[in-house]
Design a protein around this nucleic acid. Sequence first.
DNA 1: CCACAATATCGACAGATGTCAATGTTGACT
DNA 2: AGTCAACATTGACATCTGTCGATATTGTGG
Lengths: 123, 123
Amino acid sequence: MLTYAGHMSTPTLLPLAETEVCRAPLTRQPLDAEQAVDLARLLKALADPARLRLLSIVAASEGQQACVCDLTEPVGLSQPTISHHLKVLMEAGFLSRSKRGTWAYYALVPGALDSVATVLVTA
Amino acid sequence: MLTYAGHMSTPTLLPLAETEVCRAPLTRQPLDAEQAVDLARLLKALADPARLRLLSIVAASEGQQACVCDLTEPVGLSQPTISHHLKVLMEAGFLSRSKRGTWAYYALVPGALDSVATVLVTA
DNA sequence: CCACAATATCGACAGATGTCAATGTTGACT
DNA sequence: AGTCAACATTGACATCTGTCGATATTGTGG
């Protein structure tokens, strides 16, 4: 689904998180090489302090969305660096981008973080 | 607790996973800089295909433990590289090591993966 | 059309990371 | 003691990554 107002960017790369939703916890049976690479790609996207803060700030914002100008100051990095991190999170499927006027609003992709959490859980 | 048979190695670095167990999901409120660095450190330890496979193989092994010689062949990397990855996972608090004779048995630290999963979950 | 504001992209650079071969350590067994 | 097996550590190397300044792109408003 994931229909948003405004112009929805079409990511050139496939949303990685989606390919990975329906996996059993990694503690149930060994992952093969391909599954490991896919999951590692998602975790790599999350494994950065700035990106984690970006995700949490977006999640805690009004309407679960925020524009770049709202994110630069609290994280304390330059605007190009923030844009870079947002792109990484988008390509991994954790964020979506909708453009309204000059502003680009980033929002959490529902279920993306949860699918990673599900794979990690031991139960 | 975490009492194991055999000689239990005492990691020189504090088990990072433990410091991080009691955090609310990152989507509830923004993480501060320190929390972000801590969580990123854990995710970095997980964000590698070889290490994910190591974790899953250990978890699926008899008694949730395996020695290095059992891990080298299925992962397809050299023994020093396997030892390196196991060390990373140990220092992050995901694996523990108990030595019996010449063999070093690695085992999942109960709850370590789950605590990361809990932080990631959206609910 | 022209300036300006918000983002994105590019190029460069320092530092981190994954990998292996070589070597060191430790314990078992004769 | 001596040898061998399992594992850890070291050193080196290529690659990846995070960061910024500079520049390009796109949309707004005069």
